[in-house]
C-alpha cells in the first residue's frame, strides 16, 4: 500500500504542507517496501485555476491508495474519491510524524460531509 503526503521538501523530515492543490511536492511512501519517491507538483502549483483537480490527478497516477494533507477542496476531493484514494487530514509538522500517526491508526479518514462547499 502507498500513501501520499503533501510536502515542501524531499525527505521524511520535511514539513507536511497544509495545502493540497498548491503543495510543492508529494512524497509517496510505500508501506510494504519502506521506500518512498518524491513527485514534483510545480506544474499544478502554478496553475491559475484548477490546481486541486490536477494535483489530485497526479496523486491518482502515482498509485497512492491514501493521501495525508492539511486540507483539501471539494473538487480535488471528488477526484480522489473517484480514484478510490482515502483522504486523511493532519496538522502535525512533518511528514514522518504524519506517517507515524497513520501507522498508529491515529488519523481519521475524512468524511464527505463538507466537501460540496458552495464558495468556489
Amino acid at each position: 500500500m502507498k500513501i501520499a503526503f503533501t510536502t515542501s521538501g524531499s525527505e521524511l523530515t520535511a514539513p507536511l504542507d497544509q495545502r493540497f492543490g498548491r503543495a510543492f511536492k508529494f512524497l509517496v511512501y510505500d508501506l510494504e517496501k519502506d521506500t518512498f519517491e518524491v513527485i514534483d507538483n510545480k506544474q499544478n502549483l502554478d496553475a491559475a485555476q484548477g490546481a486541486g483537480i490536477q494535483s489530485a490527478g497526479t496523486v491518482a497516477r502515482s498509485g497512492a491508495d491514501a493521501l495525508v494533507s492539511g486540507h483539501c477542496g471539494p473538487k480535488a476531493f471528488r477526484v480522489l474519491l473517484a480514484a478510490g484514494i482515502k483522504v486523511f487530514y493532519s496538522d502535525v509538522p512533518t511528514v514522518s510524524e504524519a506517517l507515524d500517526a497513520y501507522r498508529q491508526g491515529k488519523l481519521i479518514e475524512s468524511g464527505t460531509a463538507d466537501v460540496e462547499g458552495h464558495w468556489e
Binding site: Q18, R19, R22, Q49, G70, H71, G73, W119, E120
Partner: peptide
C-alpha cells in the same frame, strides 16, 4: 469576494 483567490489567501 469568496472565490479561488480568497481561498488561496486564507488557507493555512
Amino acid at each position: 469576494g469568496i472565490g479561488c483567490p480568497v481561498i488561496a489567501s486564507i488557507t493555512g
